[in-house]
Design a protein around this nucleic acid. Structure first.
Lengths: 140, 140
DNA sequence: GTCCGTGCAAAGGATTTGCATAATC
DNA sequence: GATTATGCAAATCCTTTGCACGGAC
């Protein structure tokens, strides 16, 4: 029963259990692809006859981000996308044609980033490595 | 005389020589730090008593980007920044406190990115590696 | 019952666009 | 002189905010 775990997640974050929060959290947990824009969330909920106001979606997503339940990305193209935080770091490969997102981890790249931050005397807080390209399906 | 070269750059791009274009191009060539937002451009021109409308700044920056004279980056925080295209690839380190941008190149990281794209069967078109942190000055 | 959450509509910031005027070639 | 640029204001896109009402605890 995932619902129980979701209740727990919300409680831990100090958030009351409400229908919009539960639905958005479930949605992000089951989302495939993992990465959804606020508009995707709005549309999917609406298609399932669960209308939630845009303002609420943004507020909930922001709260989830603050609670580190999800992660927000600003890929090229203006809008933000959100994905469930799985606590396993990874970077992204985005298809500029179909917007599909793939994930990857490369330890060597990670290590070099630490090096660079050290060399430049920055206290590293975050990083964003996004590779853009055209995926196999789209490239025909 | 840089002006001559700038004329040439604009002509090659198929753009007429106009005051706003020349000023914006010069500005980006001499900018330090290299990375300016549209608002930075607006403010700097205005301070030099060369008023250019915001609409024009955005149009010119977009044309320059299309002509590959400059590069546009969407770092975290909403607004875009632009820098002169120097045809030497590099990535960025951004201070989240003062917005200072440093550049770096790491051949090992570059090579690994190619690997990843190949492995995932993406035809690589671009990539963006941005490391966020707090720079030495701000971290006190 | 209190406090927090939601919906709605309106505001916000960054960027773009339509249109009349002005400049380049 | 024809075509392309500019300035201005209005429009647009994504996101946030104010406020009154409704729901969680």
């Amino acid at each position: 029963m995932e619902t129980k775990m979701d209740h727990q997640k919300l409680r831990t974050a100090g958030l009351k259990i409400t229908a919009p929060r539960m639905k958005i959290l479930e949605l992000l947990e089951n989302a495939d692809p993992h990465h959804l824009s606020a508009e995707d969330v709005y549309r999917i909920l609406r298609e399932a006859d669960h209308d939630v106001a845009f303002a609420t979606i943004y507020r909930v997503l922001t709260q989830f981000e603050e609670a580190k339940l999800i992660k927000r990305h600003n890929f090229e193209g203006g809008r933000s996308v959100f994905e469930l935080e799985k606590h396993e770091h990874h970077d992204h490969l985005v298809c500029i044609s179909c917007n599909r997102v793939e994930e990857f981890v490369d330890e060597v790249i990670e290590a070099h980033q630490l090096e660079i931050a050290k060399k430049k005397k920055f206290r590293l807080t975050d990083h964003n490595l996004t590779i853009y390209g055209v995926c196999e399906k789209c490239d025909q």
